[in-house]
Design a protein around this nucleic acid. Structure first.
Lengths: 237, 237
DNA sequence: TGGTTGCATATTGTCAGCAATTTGCAAAAC
DNA sequence: GTTTTGCAAATTGCTGACAATATGCAACCA
């Protein structure tokens, strides 16, 4: 691996520095992805090349390159001579993505169970305890980031970036599924009960049980989301 | 300069049809991918934009777009202002990819066990029987495609294209791992024994056991490959 | 001899423009 | 009233050209 020289930044040369480590099309890709995932564009909505290019202050070339990457990431659909559209996720698609996410998360749990350190166990225990508190107080604002941190710690804890990338890719794509709501009272308790079950299998360093606990946790989250369908109630997965 | 004629060709309308359903950059992407996976370019080797563009008879634009997609697919590495290189897969990377492939294949087995039809079971039984024959005759030429067909039937049999795409993506990336050989005598028997174990769990419609059998089968393949390291002997996975 | 500097060449990054296709809409035909 | 036809405008697909960066090599210096 060749080291690229780091430019000396005195102050505020960020934009310049960014372009030293990334090409413009990569920056554009990241920007468009942010816009899509923010919900500013609805699934199925068309992304106009020139409009986006003007908005980002670049020409159409980098935008077209970014589209290719976003297509490969499953975030946009491309139709020749027609244009690029924000990917639509049907209920069937969402189920499929959830199943893959469950398999990947279960696999992460399994792999982690084989190599988890006491320090990692401690960190997860802390997160579960904090979620218990947030849950008992019905404080979703606190619960949500803890929940994400718990899942992230497990997925990244395996030291398998391929697995982590694939997992986060599924999470990202699920953000495009419209029929997901925000909060549902019942999700808290059962969700953290499952977290504790996962933690127990990791603590026991039982790979087989760890997969099962992780897989079922995501599947339970899927059921909680899917049960609400298009109602505006949802769940902590 | 490529011709994009509207001419009515009686027999060879292929090129026309292709460009009606796919954009040039997609064709270019597919071509470059074929070249890479054929081994014509070594991992780590640089892919020159102009050279490739000339070779394919297009300008650099479509080639650059193809690069973005190939990068997202994990087949090339991009370094700003330096160029695009065929992705190098280290031993550590290969292990990581194998672990994900195992998780995905196990998940496919699990999902399939919940919905498999008798017709699908029959097809898999036939494949295993044929592999038994090929194995007993040590006919690798016959065994190899049957082996792929068996795995493909399971992965596509779940009717989950997200899962299938992710699985095939891992298989594709493993093709870039150079330290894999071709044949090793011992692989046959154990491999098809595992196939039969998978088949049994599917036949019993036992999701839990199916995951385990599928996961362990790929893990066993990993071990068989990795054990040989850079020796030119390898294995039927 | 070993290492640095400076310039010519090669390659990448980006842009503007042209050709081809699609889209929108109004007029004509039935 | 509905469908079809025929432009005009908008958009996509692709290319060639220019600017910025990296590379290779020879001359120069310690």
């Amino acid at each position: 691996m060749i080291e690229r020289p780091q430019s000396i930044t005195v102050s505020g040369t960020e934009a310049l520095d960014v372009l030293r480590n990334a090409t413009l099309s990569q920056v554009v890709q990241s920007e468009i992805e942010k816009i899509i995932l923010s919900g500013a564009f609805q699934p199925g909505e068309k992304l106009n090349e020139k409009t986006l290019a003007d908005r980002l202050g670049v020409s159409r070339g980098p935008v077209r390159e970014a589209f290719q990457a976003l297509h490969a990431r499953g975030l946009v659909e491309m139709i020749p001579n027609r244009g690029v559209f924000v990917q639509e996720i049907t209920r069937h698609d969402a189920v499929a993505i959830y199943d893959v996410r469950a398999g990947l998360f279960g696999t992460a749990c399994r792999l982690l169970a084989e190599r988890i350190t006491t320090s990692q166990i401690g960190a997860l225990k802390s997160l579960v305890a904090q979620m218990d508190v947030a849950g008992s107080q019905r404080d979703l604002e606190a619960y949500f980031p803890l929940n994400i941190a718990f899942h992230t710690a497990i997925v990244t804890g395996t030291d398998n970036s391929v697995l982590a990338d694939a997992y986060f890719s599924m999470v990202r794509r699920l953000h495009l599924y419209r029929a997901r709501g925000l909060v549902h009272g019942g999700g808290f308790e059962s969700s953290n009960i499952e977290h504790r079950a996962i933690l127990d299998t990791l603590d026991a360093r039982n790979p087989h049980a760890a997969f099962e606990a992780g897989y079922l946790h995501v599947q339970a989250g899927k059921v909680r989301i899917m049960a609400t369908d298009d109602t505006k109630t949802a769940v902590a997965s």
